[in-house]
Computed example of a mutant assay.
Amino acid sequence: MNKLEALKDYIRGLGSLAVAYSSGVDSTFLLKVAHDVLGDRCIAVTGVSPSFPKREREESEAFCRAEGIRQIFVEPNELADENYASNPANRCYYCKHRIFSKMLEIAQQEGIPHVAEGSNMDDLGDYRPGFDAIRELQILSPLREMELSKAEIREYSRALGLPTADKPSFACLASRIPYGERITAEKLAMVEAAEEVLAGYGIPQYRVRAHGNLARIEVPEEYLGFVMEDTRRKEILERFRTIGFFYVTVDMKGFRSGSMNEVLS
């Protein structure tokens, strides 16, 4: 039995499921498989937050409409939690605990005993304090349960015809702000607007790290010359300054996931 069939059997045994859905590669795959197996006994639950870009929410809505999946939105209001807003190194724990607690409440209201999230085996290699909240709240992680890697999830997603098969990885916008620097809705909005600028140039993977009024752009190494082309460089600078960044830099190491965690090692 391959891992996809094993995943289906695992989900079938649950009877019903609420999937924490972000429109990313992993949660889209999990939601698709769960809905195929469980039908209306599967629902999508999506967080609405300043740290979750409008683009991602719209993509989640479009997918659920196309697949006929009932989607429920939840507002964790994590900025009201000082433990989160003060941005400690374990910020992700407080965010995950807050949002999954609310998702559990929704699942209970719907008569669904289980909530599942979409982390995979590759996620175990990074600093992920949110996993502590997932474990404490007994949130299911079916993709890790089946020992699925990101590459395998992309492969299965292609076979299922999912639009996210080759979608770049994404992390919440709060991950763009250095630990210890307070998270505000204004800062998150600035980051979102700046990343939309880069997306408009067709750059496949990017991050805008916000260090106060300085923006540090991360793009793949092969795109460093692209963003530094004179006309484009000036356009980016002007648009970032309009957003509110006074200084704009390009990280010479290029894009890498979790670069803010480098200071922890």
Results as ranks from 00 to 15, higher is better:
88 P>W: 04
155 E>A: 15
86 S>Y: 02
136 E>D: 14
125 G>H: 11
264 L>D: 11
208 V>C: 05
78 E>F: 15
154 R>A: 04
160 L>I: 11
62 A>R: 15
230 D>K: 15
105 E>W: 10
245 F>T: 00
253 K>Q: 14
107 A>T: 12
115 V>R: 10
112 I>D: 10
126 D>S: 12
247 Y>W: 07
229 E>W: 02
220 P>D: 05
94 Y>H: 15
9 D>P: 05
33 V>C: 01
185 A>C: 04
21 Y>N: 11
196 E>G: 00
235 E>A: 07
116 A>I: 09
234 K>N: 02
61 E>W: 08
17 L>T: 14
160 L>H: 04
28 T>H: 06
120 N>K: 08
171 A>R: 03
192 E>A: 03
151 A>I: 06
112 I>R: 14
161 G>M: 11
34 A>F: 10
245 F>C: 00
218 E>N: 11
97 H>F: 14
257 S>D: 04
185 A>N: 09
192 E>G: 00
81 D>C: 06
215 A>T: 06
15 G>A: 09
142 P>W: 01
19 V>G: 14
60 S>V: 15
60 S>G: 15
87 N>T: 05
134 I>R: 12
201 Y>L: 14
136 E>I: 00
37 V>H: 13
41 R>A: 12
133 A>V: 07
57 R>E: 15
5 E>S: 06
170 F>S: 09
212 G>T: 09
91 R>D: 01
22 S>Q: 04
26 D>H: 04
109 Q>V: 08
243 I>W: 02
261 N>F: 02
96 K>A: 09
63 F>M: 10
97 H>P: 02
99 I>N: 03
20 A>I: 07
38 L>S: 03
57 R>F: 05
263 V>C: 04
106 I>G: 00
178 P>A: 03
29 F>W: 03
46 T>D: 11
260 M>L: 15
186 E>I: 01
237 L>P: 00
134 I>S: 12
199 A>C: 05
129 P>H: 11
108 Q>M: 08
232 R>P: 12
93 Y>P: 03
100 F>A: 07
95 C>N: 11
222 E>S: 08
147 E>A: 10
218 E>Q: 14
204 P>N: 09
31 L>I: 04
225 G>F: 01
252 M>P: 02
35 H>G: 06
136 E>R: 12
248 V>A: 00
65 R>S: 03
40 D>T: 10
